[in-house]
């Protein structure tokens, strides 16, 4: 799970330590100091079935459809087995509980989805509207044999970014799904100084993670414009 002085047993950054995000679309890094973990001690959401309809992903089918995606809404009105209480979120968060408004630049979510059955394939859109999975220059959607997640999905949510997924069932079983979410709600400070970032990396004080952001999209670009992107070569002397 990484350096125990930097991350806890769930892989979330400890307060006072740093999160270094590699941004492939820019060949840069982003660094944040985690000032506070707002949900420390209660990181789990027993979400229930994948959102929309019954949560059953039919065999040999795409969920929700070949042209649609699922985000993580607070609840779905057609089903009663969603996480109780999320319906009390502010109205603008009901469609995506991890959405961060663009002006909240000191907030990030570190999200870990655990989805069963494990064999389902999930492709990621970061943000909604821009698929990010692929192999070299070939974009991959649900019908490709590469560029997907099984079971465990980890990502960091930047402001202004709706993260979305499309799921494919390569079996013939109409499977009941379940999702458990672990997340950290970070209050962060962007590290803008290269020398400081280099020191943090050299001392092994950062969790280093790659943002699933290979292909650019204006929503993420807007979010990134609020932070200082640093050179990728700062990683050269990093302790991982």
């Amino acid at each position: 799970m990484g350096n125990e002085s930097v991350v806890d047993e769930m892989g979330f950054v400890r307060e006072g330590k740093y999160l270094c995000l590699i941004v492939p679309a820019h060949e840069k890094i982003l660094m944040f100091r985690v000032v506070q973990r707002k949900n420390k001690g209660f990181e789990k959401i027993l979400y229930g079935p994948l959102p929309y309809s019954t949560g059953v992903v039919d065999g040999d089918s795409v969920f929700p459809s070949a042209s649609d995606v699922w985000k993580i809404p607070a609840y779905v009105s057609t089903s009663g087995d969603r996480a109780e209480g999320l319906e009390n979120l502010r109205a603008d968060l009901l469609g995506d509980i991890f959405y961060i408004p663009v002006d909240m630049v000191d907030m990030l979510f570190d999200v870990h989805l655990k989805i069963t059955p494990y064999f389902l394939r999930h492709v990621i859109f970061y943000p909604e509207g821009q698929i990010q999975s692929g192999f070299r220059d070939v974009a991959a959607d649900y019908d490709k044999d590469f560029g997907f997640y099984n079971g465990d999905i980890r990502y960091v949510v930047l402001p202004n970014t709706h993260v979305a997924f499309r799921t494919y069932n390569d079996s013939n079983l109409n499977v009941y799904t379940n999702m458990i979410i672990e997340y950290a709600n970070y209050k962060v400070q962007n590290v803008e100084d290269e020398a400081k970032a280099e020191e943090v990396l050299r001392k092994g004080n950062a969790k280093i993670e790659t943002l699933p952001y290979i292909y650019k999209h204006e929503r993420v670009e807007t979010a990134l414009s609020n932070y200082k992107l640093l050179p990728l070569d700062l990683l050269e002397n990093a302790r991982w």
């Binding site: 059953v56 039919d58 065999g59 040999d60 059955p117 064999f119 044999d145 069932n169 390569d170 079996s171 013939n172 079983l173 109409n174 499977v175 009941y176």
Partner: peptide
């Protein structure tokens, strides 16, 4: 099965 809602007469194993 209580893991799936249909009653197939075979299982197609996901590739891999």
């Amino acid at each position: 099965s209580d893991a799936f809602s249909n009653t197939p007469n075979y299982i197609r194993i996901p590739k891999g």
